[in-house]
């Protein structure tokens, strides 16, 4: 299973005289079970790209294949694509609206027209996956904390049984404990349920800690694609396009620039302190 984009272009406002070429010749293959970090400054095309993936918007040119099938094919079931590729928007808790937590999570599966038993099974399972206990099922979602609300919103998407989960800045505005909670949850979903995760993030620290493959966008193009440890070698280039590297990587680069013989490409705090220690003693 995979998502494949072939020569995809997206232009906003065609024919209005204010055209904006938001995506330029994107060629990308996302494989089953990958944990991908998507980075890029505001306006680089990240959000446009993720909206293409579940068919919310249609490419101006080019083709997208989901599991080998062209999603722009006349006979393709776009509705099923939207449940297979779950999109969690920024501040998803703003979209909570039901009177109880469990009703909110059931809204998606209900719209799929599933039998009541299946709806209930799916919603209980999704809430369990995100760690919302039974004591909160009948509580108003608005009475929950920021981190809890966000987990309920994610459960609403999980209840659709997506194969791919795309999250746009899922930890924006959360405190450090809340960030770890959500990102740890994603890692767990990825490991235990083999869900493909695409994490859109401004935080290089989070990308360093969690993802296997990193995509960097600039001006509508994918300019870097690879393991975070390799991509963070391009510190100057990343800074030029409004991003940067984690503080830990800065420490390693400064030491290396001063002649320190530090081996490997450590990126997390654990890896970095280990590498520095080996060099020191």
């Amino acid at each position: 299973m995979s998502i494949k984009l072939q020569d995809v272009n997206y232009i906003y406002g065609i024919g209005t005289g204010q055209e904006k070429h938001a995506l330029k010749n994107i060629n990308l293959e996302i494989n089953d079970g990958e944990f991908i970090g998507l980075a890029g400054h505001t306006g680089s095309g990240k959000s446009t790209l993720v909206q293409l993936l579940n068919g919310l918007i249609r490419a101006s040119s080019g083709t997208i294949y989901y599991n080998g099938q062209n999603i722009y094919d006349k006979l393709y079931n776009m509705r099923s694509l939207r449940s297979k590729v779950g999109l969690v928007f920024q501040y998803p808790e703003h979209q909570l609206f039901e009177t109880t937590v469990v009703n909110d999570v059931q809204f998606g599966p209900k719209n799929l027209g599933l039998p009541q038993l299946e709806i209930e099974l799916r919603s209980f399972k999704a809430l369990k996956m995100v760690g919302i206990g039974d004591d909160l099922l009948d509580v108003s979602p608005f009475a929950l904390s920021g981190g809890q609300k966000r987990r309920v919103a994610i459960a609403g998407i999980l209840a659709m049984k997506p194969e791919v989960l795309v999250l746009d800045e899922p930890v924006a505005g959360l405190d450090p404990a809340g960030r770890d909670e959500i990102l740890g949850l994603l890692k767990k979903l990825h490991n235990e349920n083999n869900i493909t995760v695409i994490l859109v993030s401004h935080s290089m620290e989070d990308i360093a800690k969690y993802v296997d493959r990193m995509l960097v966008m600039n001006r509508g193009e994918i300019v870097l694609d690879g393991k975070p440890s390799k991509i963070f070698c391009f510190e100057k280039e990343l800074e030029k396009i409004g991003l940067g590297v984690p503080e830990t990587v800065k420490v390693i680069h400064r030491l290396q620039d001063a002649g320190a013989n530090i081996i490997g490409e450590p990126i997390t705090t654990e890896e970095s302190s280990e590498a520095i220690y080996r060099w020191l003693v």
């Binding site: 405190d175 404990a177 420490v251 705090t269």
Partner: peptide, 15 residues
């Protein structure tokens, strides 16, 4: 208190 310390401080503490 559900907070943390800067990454640089974390490396120093690990060392």
């Amino acid at each position: 208190y559900k907070l943390t310390i800067p990454e640089v401080t974390k490396i120093a503490l690990a060392l």
